[in-house]
Design a protein around this nucleic acid. Structure first.
Lengths: 167, 167
DNA sequence: AATAAAAAGTTATAATATAACAATTATTAC
DNA sequence: GTAATAATTGTTATATTATAACTTTTTATT
């Protein structure tokens, strides 16, 4: 089941699934899923919080790779091209894609309190966008919706007790 | 009439209107619409292309103001707080708001060819977003949709002849 | 006019991202 | 299997975007 803010989930399964899917997708597309790309994808998937590129560097260094910025940016670029990772532009941060193969419309709910982000799809939203763009004669290449606010989990519990963790 | 990609319009009217509206809004809110804030708003409104903060600095210098980055960022921050300017986060750029007073939902169509951006409102879109967030129990603070692609104007004419200008 | 508050000037630096070229590794052609 | 080619990664340097911190000036309040 897809991650929602309130789900207490076994996050290791998210990671396992994401890595397996990525492996398969790269194979299907004839793309090389190299060690550094795997590592970066794993690091991005370490939580449901969008992470900055520079936040990933220490772990890359620990794993024995070159940890200069181009290393992580190249891997992130590759992962974005494959649709495995999204960039949340208002945060300058990256998050694993949880809707592989449905790249056209990206919609994110971002909680200001726990900092977690949920990606979701909505046919209603897709229709609304199509209505707008068709009306304008606009040919869509990509679309990206960021909704910032407070998730139900954080609304339900006091701020002080909020751990910011996902499980 | 609001700017659309295909409209050949008298852009000086856009500027005049935007400045007059801003003057009025600041007065109504008891905010000081200082010279530098006016200048920055005018500069942002010089076109319908989102402009980077550093692109504004030369003109600020020419106008005799300090042109260090904080000058322009402070003005832009003020203008954003008043809802007079939006930041297009995927471009690290700023554009004048063409729907004053309806800040809740921002939707932008951004043409990759002519680089112009159109802000629009859609009740259908607003409903779609409400449906999503209500369903998730998510309390929205702000939302921002960026749709990137090719405008009807650029689709209609060859790329080589495209001037990127708005009138 | 004296005081306080807000805004703008100024210097320095933080945070994010990319350019350019060298070295290495993997793939393809033979 | 080896040479040639292409792709990836290492490395150094730097570009781009944005903010911190403190000073000076301007505006508003007493």
């Amino acid at each position: 089941m897809a991650f929602t803010f309130q789900s207490k989930h076994d996050h290791s399964r998210c990671i396992t699934q994401a890595m397996a899917d990525a492996e398969q997708l790269c194979a299907a597309n004839g793309q090389r899923f190299t060690k550094i790309r795997k590592l970066v994808l794993e690091l991005v998937w370490q939580s449901h919080r969008p992470l900055g590129a520079y936040e990933l560097l220490p772990a890359i260094k620990e794993a024995g790779f070159n940890s200069a910025p181009p290393t992580v940016y190249r891997a992130l670029e590759f992962l974005q091209e494959q649709g495995l990772v999204h960039r949340i532009s208002s945060l300058n941060a990256f998050i694993g894609c949880s809707h592989l193969g449905h790249q056209a419309s990206c919609c994110f709910l971002i909680c200001q309190q726990c900092q977690l982000a949920v990606e979701l799809e909505s046919s209603t939203l897709a229709s609304a966008i199509t209505a707008i763009t068709d009306d304008m004669g606009f040919v869509v290449q990509r679309e990206h919706l960021e909704i910032v606010g407070k998730c139900s989990n954080c609304t339900a519990k006091p701020a002080a007790l909020d751990s910011g963790e996902c499980d």
